[in-house]
Amino acid sequence: MISVESYKRPETIAEALKLLKTGKFGIIAGGTDVIPQMRHTPARSLLDIGKLGLDFVRENDNTVEIGAAATHSQIQNNPLIQRFLPLLSTACGLVGSWQIRNRGTIGGNIVNASPCADSAPALLIYDTKVVLLSSQGRRSVNLSEFIKKPYLTVLTAKDLVHSFVCQKGDDSAGNSFIKLGRRQAVNISRMTIAVSLVRDDSNKITMAKIAVGSVFPTPTRISELENKLIGQIVSKELFDETADLAADLMIKASGVRWSTPYKKPVLIGLMRRALVGASGIKEIPA
């Protein structure tokens, strides 16, 4: 039993927004983050968004829109997402266990804003916008601005996350998603890296997108690395330098910490592996 003051499960978005306007409700979607948290916090009123029809996935011209209540399992197995947002399908397929993926939603993952939220680096690669609804109307925020710091977003108690609008990925891109370690395994910093690269016939990189989780305080795209790669010919040296630069940027942002002797070589190693993986070239020229 957890302590709950009241529980509402509205069937229309209008009704949900009216309840949220009172500022008294906390939203529950899959509950995989909220329910364990609530065992230690005072009673709240819960608004369950499970009946609002927010579990859709739909295709527009250049975008795919994913409802906030779509589960990780749904996203992992959805053909549109597999085709146009392959890194997101991979990322959601690596969340927790089958049981957690069947309940946990993408909205909950992003709003919880853990530095290691698995869907975040993948969504960042696809330049995702978060669509918010409130009784005031609709607004749309870049995901990169939506998460402010660990466990804090721009969301107010009156807002509902409606959906995520993702730019379709480049068909010809090579993609790589690496997730390290176990959630909550004591003392091991987990890390996630998502890389998407396009190269031309001469192995020149024409597009590069790189995002990481648990490297900086929030999941982040690293434009310095992307700019370093674009226009260059794939080589071992280029990838080594790019991976070293990632580690330099991490240390510049957070300073040298107790975890640095572990995280630095791990980040360098994983970044190299992710770059090689996304390049699609087995034997990288020196």
């Binding site: 529980y7 499970g50 089958w98 049981q99 957690i100 069947n102 309940r103």
Partner: peptide, 18 residues
């Protein structure tokens, strides 16, 4: 673990009302 519409879920992480 129980099955919800044939899919495994943790019954410790779901409200009865859900």
């Amino acid at each position: 673990t129980v099955l919800l519409d044939n899919k495994p879920v943790c019954s410790c992480l779901i409200l009865a009302a859900q």
